[in-house]
Amino acid sequence: MGHLITKPNIETPDAFYSDLIKLHEGLTDDESEALNAKLILVLSNHIGDTKVLREAFELCKG
């Protein structure tokens, strides 16, 4: 199966980052945390490959 992509993979990084920060605009810290949790779950489902997801978990733990 696949591997976690760690090379740049987003075509317009500045626009992506700006959208991400805007998504949280006006939210309380708790609301932001909840949103982030949902985001992780949605994206994890999109990735699907548990091997890739475990690689991501390991990378972020370290």
Binding site: I5, P8, N9, Y17, L20, H24, D29, L59
Partner: peptide, 26 residues
């Protein structure tokens, strides 16, 4: 905001070892 700061520092932290995070450092 706090969350914006958290994301910013996560990008910087990842950029030390992860190539993908470097284009996000602005």
């Amino acid at each position: 905001s706090k969350i914006s700061h958290t994301f910013r520092n996560a990008v910087l932290n990842l950029a030390k070892t992860q190539e993908f995070a470097r284009p996000l450092v602005n």
